[in-house]
Design a binder for these strands. Structure first.
Length: 429
RNA sequence: GCCCAGGUAGUGUAGUGGCCUAUCAUGACGGCCUGUCACGCCGUCGACACGGAUUCAAAUUCCGUCCUGGGCGCCA
């Protein structure tokens, strides 16, 4: 039996713990070890003349980052971290760590992202890295709770798909027995088909794959998307759902991840509802006041434009009413002004987090929209079929989990928000 | 894909033609040290990505290769 290190208090009489050797300080007659597990760090103090010989031998042999079991008396002592320390009766090396270490877990010396990812298992021993992933876990957990509470059904859609069905982004081709197949870029078509199934409200948290050769701090080739689709809803309904979700997730993290946030030095401020809605045409106007390369109607927002708008607003916001031409075929055009559509992006001041729309649910209009994008409706037969036998009006969005975590925790690089990032150059570990 | 910047001990760095058998820190090893908490002090160990070129002389300049970071493009 062993105790989580956090639960060992100055009032404890004795304790047995298992953890990694975080630091060793040898003062001569006295040795100090810091032992770390995922709950915290405790000091183990060894007065060399007073401990059993086996303890002394193990203390001399052990290396940093080895796994050790320690049992002994707990002493309340102000000078020790956490106000307590263990004086061991037993010290057992369970797994001796090699030396030198590929990176310094105690972070006396920093390591570059590349070095860190090469030894991600060691990097993730750092309390601040662990904290990021505990918070990410809380984020997806809170999002799942929230969507269940709103009556959404958690679905899983295929990640291996038949063809480059959506146009736009590049797909990763794979061999599927005798057929050509691709890694899916989004669950978009499948979650819409579940509207035709009458599931009414669905969500999925899953991987998406984009074969773009981008090389930035905010793109990954394998990312995690939170996708939602709701029937009998329009774009305004799902924007409200999205901002409710963001606020719920922030509140949940603030309420349950206090120690992790403290580890990261973050004091989380909960976004205020409603998020401002800015029309696309207003957005380019605002951006054009400050950016060099002016935008005109029909241009997508550049990163510089996103930052210019974001820094003025200073909080999460929506950009609504986009030109139909620069949104996907499934975005619903306004009937009275079809050059605009019921699409939106949800933005953090730093970057886009989510995009969504009310969808085209009319079969013939959808075919027309697909053609207008220069795509062949025949390639979409499996999808279009769902629009012929009673497709309800519906709307939805997709939200990048890594970007949500990145912006929530003010991380400098999206790779901080994923354990094993896949980017232009990295396929291992 | 275009552009910019890089690759020096395990890790993070200094060094832009000779002053470099390469700086500092961390680390490892040895020594001293009974209250450290980035412990301190002394000693030792360990590196110029690879290949070619220029030069009396290359970590430093040039060419090529490989690798990396970032900006942009692209990204429904």
């Amino acid at each position: 039996m062993h105790l989580p290190i956090r639960t060992v208090t100055p009032e404890s009489e004795s304790a047995a713990i298992i953890g990694w050797v975080h630091e060793i300080r040898d003062l001569g007659g006295l040795m100090f070890f810091l032992i770390r597990d995922r709950t915290g760090i405790i000091q183990v103090t060894i007065p060399k003349k007073k401990v059993p010989a086996e303890v002394l031998d193990a203390a001399r042999d052990v290396s940093r980052e080895s796994v050790v079991r320690v049992r002994g008396r707990v002493k309340a002592i102000d000078k020790a971290p956490g106000g307590r320390e263990i004086v061991p009766d037993g010290l057992e090396i369970i797994s001796l760590a090699g030396s030198p270490l590929p990176l310094d877990v105690a972070e006396k010396v920093p390591a570059e992202m590349d070095t860190r990812i090469d030894s991600r298992f060691l990097d993730a021993r750092k309390p601040r890295v662990r904290a990021i992933f505990c918070i990410r876990s809380a984020v997806t957990c809170a999002a799942t709770e929230f969507l269940h509470s709103r009556g959404c059904i958690n679905i899983t859609t295929p990640k291996i798909v038949a063809a480059a069905t959506e146009g736009g982004t590049e797909l990763f081709p794979i061999a599927y027995f005798e057929k050509e197949a691709f890694m899916n870029q989004s669950p978009q078509l499948y979650k819409q088909m579940m509207m035709a199934a009458g599931f009414e409200k669905v969500f999925e948290i899953g991987p998406i794959f984009r074969a773009e050769e981008h090389n930035t701090i905010r793109h990954l080739n394998e990312a995690t998307s939170l996708d939602v689709e709701v029937s009998f809803a329009d774009h305004n309904d799902v924007m409200e759902l999205l901002e409710d979700l963001i606020v719920y997730v922030y509140e949940s993290v603030a309420g349950t991840c206090g120690d992790d946030l403290a580890e990261l030095g973050i004091s989380l401020s909960i976004p205020g509802k409603p998020f401002p809605r800015i029309r696309y045409e207003e957005a380019i106007e605002i951006a054009n006041r400050t950016i060099e390369d002016k935008l005109s109607f029909g241009d997508d927002l550049t990163p510089a434009a996103e930052r210019a708008i974001g820094s003025g607003i200073g909080q999460h916001y929506f950009i609504v009413d986009w030109p139909t031409d620069i949104r996907p075929y499934y975005a619903m055009p306004y009937p009275d002004r079809p050059e605009l559509c019921k699409a939106f992006d949800m933005m953090h001041p730093r970057m886009e987090l989510s995009s969504g729309a009310q969808r085209v649910h009319d079969h013939d209009l959808l075919v027309e929209r697909i053609r207008a994008k220069g795509l062949a409706p025949e390639a979409f037969e499996f999808y279009l079929k769902a629009f012929r036998y009673g497709m309800p009006p519906h709307a939805g969005w997709g939200l990048g989990i890594e970007r949500l975590v990145m912006t929530m925790l003010d991380l400098g690089n999206i790779r901080e928000a994923v354990l094993f990032p896949r980017d232009r150059h990295r396929l291992t570990p």
